[in-house]
């Protein structure tokens, strides 16, 4: 297990480095000049050149790269070109908002998705199954910003239950008020995804010999389904949850925007629009780290769900 972890972490470092280099080059290939964005459209060429010099953008690319990697290794990810605040501080400011939204919606997704998927598989081709399948298809096809607006129209404007600006903190009730709609919005989409995966994994497992054997020796049906079958169907579900967690963090941007919540997604879109090179580089490190860590956690979860999995 320890050797496995070390090896995986080693890979993680290589991945991180590759991503960093790629991002460094990519953001600079895209047309657009941060100095121009910062100074605005009335700035003279001279002023823009002066700023480029201050930002170090006139240095040769390899020089900029060395400066960046050297800083990153020493834990200095630079300051945002737009706001002048340290990248790490900008990220940490909004990271908690993104994490709470992501994990809560994942929780909603699992709590709804797994039982629904199991129910659909068990009642295959009956009403429950059709309802779950159509419901999950709808959930997957619905753009998150449309569902977000519908939720706001119904619960904030219509019923006045929740605020439109879902970014309050300071007390538990304020927090619940702000997180509920965004978490439901993302959670339902996640649930749709998990429902479908659970259903198909369960269908496969339910046809296995040991399920028939368990039934034949008189194990109650619910125990067969929940203990024997589901346990074995969990591996693909965990994989999907792991993959989806990475996607969720990225996908939350539309939800963040419509519900006016701070978050990483908004930060990265802003940095991209403004060609904030340092910010983008820092953000990419975080994203890569998150994806790598989630994958690692997924691997470990395999072992917990299925003792047959050996870490080699």
């Amino acid at each position: 297990m320890t050797a496995f972890l070390i090896r995986r972490l080693g890979f993680a470092v290589i991945t991180l480095f590759a991503v960093l280099t790629l991002v460094f080059v990519l953001v600079r290939i895209v047309p657009g000049d941060p100095a121009q964005v910062i100074l605005g459209d009335q700035a003279s060429r001279e002023a823009i050149e002066a700023l480029r010099e201050r930002l170090g953008l006139n240095l040769p690319l390899y020089h900029q790269y060395v400066v960046f990697v050297w800083g990153a290794l020493g834990g200095d990810w630079g300051t945002s070109m737009m706001t002048g605040r340290p990248v790490i501080q900008e990220v940490l400011n909004v990271l908690p908002w993104t994490l709470e939204l992501t994990f809560l919606s994942l929780l909603i997704g699992v709590v709804i998705g797994v039982p629904l998927g199991v129910a659909a598989a068990v009642r295959r081709n009956r009403f429950t199954d059709y309802a779950a399948r159509i419901g999950s298809l709808l959930g997957l096809s619905f753009p998150p910003f449309v569902s977000a607006l519908l939720l706001l129209l119904a619960f904030s404007i219509g019923l006045h239950w929740f605020p439109v600006i879902s970014a309050k903190s300071g007390s538990l009730s304020a927090w619940v008020e702000s997180i509920t709609l965004p978490a439901i919005n993302l959670g339902l989409i996640t649930a749709a995804y998990i429902t479908r995966v659970t259903r198909s994994a369960m269908l496969e497992v339910l046809q296995e010999d040991y399920v028939r054997t368990a039934r034949a020796k008189g194990v109650p049906w619910t125990v067969v389904v929940w203990r024997h079958a589901l346990r074995n169907a969990l591996i693909p579900v965990i994989t999907i949850i792991g993959l989806y967690l990475g996607i969720l963090i990225g996908n939350s941007v539309l939800t963040e925007i419509v519900f006016s919540r701070p978050g990483l997604g908004k930060l990265i879109v802003g940095a991209l629009n403004q060609r904030d090179y340092t910010m983008l580089q820092g953000m990419m490190v975080i994203y890569t780290l998150v994806v790598v860590l989630v994958n690692l956690a997924t691997d470990i979860a395999y072992g917990i769900a299925d003792p047959r999995v050996k870490f080699k």
């Binding site: 404007i157 439109v164 600006i165 006016s260």
Partner: peptide, 16 residues
Amino acid sequence: YIPADSSRDLAFQSGE
């Protein structure tokens, strides 16, 4: 700071 036009409109409508 509310970048989405529709969210700004809704928050205005709701009195926020």
